[in-house]
Amino acid sequence: MIEVHELTKRYGATTAVRGLGFRVRPGRVTGFLGPNGAGKSTTLRLILGLNTATSGRVTVDGRPFRDRPRGLRHVGALLDAGDVHGGHSARTHLRVLARGNGIPYARVDDVLAEVGLAEVARRRVGGFSLGMRQRLGIAAALLGDPPVLLFDEPLNGLDPEGVRWVRGLFRRLAAEGRTVFVSSHLMSEMEHTADDLVVIGRGELIAAESLAAFAARAGGGAVTVRTPDAAVLTPSLTAEGASVVPGDGGRLLVSGLDAARVGELALRHHVVLHELTTTTPSLEEAFMELTAADVQYAAGEAR
């Protein structure tokens, strides 16, 4: 369990994180979402005690992480896959971490096998691809078999097989009762993995709820209708207060009415329907909508 309370971090004049408060619960995968520069990495560093908060507090399993003399058995973290020394082999990198935490070397070989790096264990990390470094970072996070795991953008650089594997791993870790906190700036990465979401923008909390609640809050959907009699159907729909936009292939995009009501109106006016579909907005759209006001580095923004 990670508890963040009224957390604020300022660097000089800029405020990276402001009054942030949320909980990350065990047994679930929690997605940590926000546009670039929203303060995700800062928050993760504050959780790990790498940075000191200006005010507020954050605890992991009831204690500030920095109070623990050794960390790997409490929190496993992958912050940046580049946070390694290129001159070390994968195995040496992990052995150094294991040794300092009193973890037997046998565990190093176990996690290397688990992430699929057993073959390259003796190769220098400097020659690794980003995907391989991500796997090494995940191996380091797993080393201490910790109850809490943090991952900052873990899917970067992974191939599709790797992405699938990581998702499965997160699900499994959560199923084992661990707290799994995964940051991303892409909702699509979280959609099929996360149970809960923490969404921030410009350092402030936007949402902290289950994925289902977030989707529901994102608002009503639209109905797509295909009919040869658009000329008859359109006025009857607008008369009921719907807004109708012609789509491609003779389709009508109807919002303001649900599919059942659209069907009833078509029957009443003897209009033939070839298609009647409800389209829920994607989580991606919901995410974009909620964070639109908080995007720090928007492209083509007037200044």
């Binding site: 790990l48 003399p69 020394h85 300092g100 380091a140």
Partner: peptide, 21 residues
């Protein structure tokens, strides 16, 4: 060198007790 590579963060995330390290 640990600061340059960023290894210092990995190091202190594994061993939060900075002074002994």
């Amino acid at each position: 060198g640990e600061h340059r590579t960023g290894l210092i963060r990995t190091t202190f995330a594994a061993v939060p007790a900075r002074r002994p390290l």
